[in-house]
């Protein structure tokens, strides 16, 4: 049994240490907001925060997450209130198919925690997730709006 703190709640995960955190979250805890995209850390669809840092959970063994705080897309709301990044995503009408957006939002949350007023270069450096629908114009606008919020 591995204990990880997911969105503030301690969770017992019955899994091999080497199981990627992504699958522990999706298939053991059945929290499906975090997505499988490539399994090799190349697309960012699986991005979560581990102790506040954006990590690609498909390539992060669950054993290494023991005792750490994991934040997933489901944990961003405070009560019924959306995180300012989520609200900015709605205001800018970012998602198309929406599949990559959990990861995009988590990456943006981490960016804004680190840099409250990111430059264009900061945004391009931090936001390397793939959006196959190509909603980059809207993602950029939403990050800028969230930074001002």
């Amino acid at each position: 049994m591995i204990t990880i703190h997911v969105n503030g709640t301690p969770q017992q995960v019955d899994a091999e240490d080497g199981m990627p955190l992504l699958w522990a979250i999706r298939d053991v805890l059945n929290m499906t907001g975090t997505k499988y995209g490539c399994g090799v850390g190349a697309c960012g669809a699986c991005t979560v925060l581990i102790d506040g840092v954006a990590m690609r959970s498909c390539s992060f063994p669950v054993g290494l997450a023991a005792g750490k705080d994991v934040t997933t897309i489901e944990g961003l709301k405070t009560g019924d209130t959306l995180h300012k990044v989520q609200q900015a995503w709605i205001d800018a009408q970012v998602p198309q198919c929406g599949y990559c957006q959990s990861g995009q939002i988590m990456a943006a949350v981490a960016l804004l925690q680190e840099k409250s007023r990111p430059t264009e270069a900061d945004v391009e450096e931090a936001m390397t997730n793939i959006c196959r629908c190509g909603a980059y114009t809207q993602i950029r606008a939403a990050i800028n709006a969230a930074a001002r919020a």
């Binding site: 929290m31 499906t32 907001g33 975090t34 997505k35 499988y36 997933t72 897309i73 489901e74 961003l76 709301k77 959306l82 989520q86 995503w89 709605i90 009408q93 970012v94 998602p95 929406g98 599949y99 957006q101 959990s102 939002i105």
Partner: peptide
């Protein structure tokens, strides 16, 4: 505003997978 967007920003939208 599109109807499908709110569920796509909080992880609640259910895809096939």
């Amino acid at each position: 505003k599109r109807f499908d967007i709110p569920a796509k920003v909080d992880g609640s939208a259910k895809y096939g997978i």
